[in-house]
């Protein structure tokens, strides 16, 4: 039962990734400066912010900042774990 569930989950995830892969653009098709120009052109209209860097960090790529906050949390937990008081 558990084995079949794992296999089904694997097939679903793998099929999803393959499906996404077939829909991708050709290699190198969206040139890098197109994305940059999009941020420069539309940040003031979409995010209503003057600071494009902050708009990218907290709006367009908010997941990335969430990961950075998690990394910081892990670092603090590691320091607290190593420097804790050991009862002997």
């Amino acid at each position: 039962m558990k084995r079949w569930f794992v296999l089904a989950a694997f097939l679903v995830v793998a099929g999803f990734l393959v499906l996404l892969g077939t829909g991708m653009r050709p290699f190198g098709a969206p040139k890098a400066f197109e994305m940059d120009q999009y941020f420069i052109d539309y940040t003031q209209a979409e995010v209503a912010a003057n600071n494009v860097v902050t708009a990218v960090v907290f709006d367009y790529r908010g997941y990335d900042t969430l990961g950075e906050a998690t990394v910081l949390f892990c670092a603090v937990v590691g320091v607290a774990l190593i420097l804790r008081k050991v009862r002997r």
């Binding site: 995010v47 209503a48 902050t54 709006d59 910081l72 670092a75 603090v76």
Partner: peptide
Amino acid sequence: TAGTLPLMNWAVGLKVIAG
């Protein structure tokens, strides 16, 4: 301006100060 961006700045700021 900028919607949730200043609030998120304060949230991350608190997190970094405390961390």
